[in-house]
Design a protein around this nucleic acid. Structure first.
Length: 280
DNA sequence: ATGGTTGAATGTCAA
């Protein structure tokens, strides 16, 4: 089974490109962020026509998260318990959506950007990551064998090599110790980042700003991740960052990140077929 | 080409 995460930066501006990518890449489950639309604006049919079930949560033109799956989509959760809110009155934004797909609880997460270190959004970002850690820890305490994937745009570059030049990030968000500590806390709660071992840096990124020719100049950031629970991490057989998808007219500013899993219902059925053939 | 973004409530914010 292949699962993926991608900040698409508007599902309406990029629908055809997303559909082409799903098919080309043989994606079974996609966690999508920044759909930038309400539920009633989501181009559901584009994906159901390709055999995917769709769950979307969008409240406005900002944020918006979705899960697309062709291996079943059950138990949809809008937001997670304890997810911090924003605004007045304070309310959760459309930044988290979970569903069980092919036996794995897949979360599409869009961590707040943080903007500037002295902006209230920065403290909001840290609260949000802490709440995610607490929720993840709780789920694993309840079921240590659970297959959980925390997929998304974390808006944190955990290591110095995850940005093109640390000197250019002096005083900036995404690389501060509190943000990195918050990310590490989620990992230490039991969620291994499974992409990096198969796509090591330096110079390997998932996001390049549209401005200043960042992509051709290779000035990117690694901020999109798949964090897997122990049982799920044990099934990972590969991962890749689809840098090609960042190229050309109409690209998102993020690249898709894909993870391949061994086992699960499909592989068991294939193994049974193989055994049957061998015996024939 | 010596510069250079894109997408969303069309006006200005967000990333």
């Amino acid at each position: 089974m292949r699962i993926a995460t991608w900040n698409v930066n508007s599902v309406r501006a990029r629908g055809e490109r997303i559909a082409a990518w799903l098919q080309r890449s043989d994606v079974d489950v996609a966690a999508v962020q920044e759909t930038k639309c309400r539920d009633d604006q989501f181009p559901t049919q584009l994906f159901t026509d390709l055999g995917y079930e769709v769950a979307h949560h969008g409240l406005s033109q900002w944020n918006g998260v979705a899960v697309l799956s062709r291996v079943g989509l059950e138990d949809v959760q809008v937001g997670f318990p304890g997810q911090p809110g924003w605004g007045d009155p304070e309310a959760p934004e459309a930044r988290a959506l979970g569903a069980v797909c092919g036996g794995v609880r897949v979360w599409s997460l869009y961590v707040p950007n943080g903007r500037e270190i002295d902006d209230p959004h920065y403290a909001y970002k840290l609260r949000w990551l802490e709440a995610l850690r607490a929720y993840g820890a709780e789920r694993l305490a309840e079921d240590p064998q659970a297959g959980i994937a925390l997929c998304g745009d974390f808006n944190v570059a955990p290591q110095d090599d995850d940005v093109w030049d640390m000197a250019e990030f002096e005083g900036s968000t995404h690389v501060t110790k509190p943000e990195r500590d918050a990310f590490t806390s989620v990992v230490e709660a039991g969620f291994t980042e499974v992409v990096r071992p198969y796509a090591p840096g330096p110079g390997v990124y998932t996001y390049w700003d549209y401005k200043q020719l960042s992509f051709p100049k290779r000035k990117g950031m690694r901020i999109d991740f798949v964090l897997a629970s122990p049982a799920l991490a044990a099934r990972v057989s590969g991962a890749l960052i689809d840098r090609e998808e960042r190229k050309g007219k109409g690209a998102s500013d993020h690249a898709p990140v894909m993870v391949d899993l061994d086992g699960g219902a499909e592989d068991e059925s294939a193994a049974a077929d193989s055994a049957g053939l061998a015996g024939a």
